[in-house]
Amino acid sequence: MNVLEVKNVSKRFGNLVAVRDVSLTVKKGELRAVIGPNGAGKTTFFNLISGFFPPSAGTVIFEDMDVTDLSAQKRVVLGMARTFQITEIFPELSVYENVRIGAESAAGFRLRPWLSAVEKSEIRNLVDETLALCGLTDKAGRLVGELAHGHQRATEIAMALTLRPRLLLLDEPTSGMGDQETYEITQLVRRLHRDSNFTIVLIEHDMRVVFHLADFITVLDQGALLAEGTPKEIEANPAVQAAYLGKAA
């Protein structure tokens, strides 16, 4: 079954065409990487999928439902969660509180004046499980704003996971991180994909990470689709090499 079908989307900002006629199909359980040189339109493309802004043309279909005109918030409710290149968290709250807000929202408790004891323990269990999955159990009581960058990113991923998303969108999950942090986040994404069977689309510039993780790779260049295939095919593709090494070819 296809979780995500993007059909011929384009996005114009005035005269600039940031994304030009790109299509993409992601199957259930797949891990897809979107790569490309700086300014290739990767993040814009992500924003079109997650509903940050609407496309100028084309359609976005999520689990056989046309979501092109739905707001970002409605897409989240349908089961699409995302993280951002610049971590978006609640800095003055603890890790536990950050993740709990996601869990309560996903459980449909966001307007509730109180929770029953059973509901409270359900939320607590979900939060504890998610924290354990993301390796944050010993950080639960710390303020997120005081944590290292890698743990902040892990918290953001944990928040997205509490939504039990059927499509997880990760925008450069290892950006700005050192080797050790990059390794930890890569391992986390791998666990989510292999063990928990999440369908994931991620943008990444670190090629080690991409070739290590991805089932399929989509390459964008100057807003357009340049190539698509398995890591091996992409590695051997002359057009991709040219795009990354310069316009000589």
Binding site: F84, S105, R110
Partner: peptide
């Protein structure tokens, strides 16, 4: 963080 709140549904 309004954006994060929105992207938590």
């Amino acid at each position: 963080n309004e954006r994060r709140a929105r992207f938590l549904g």
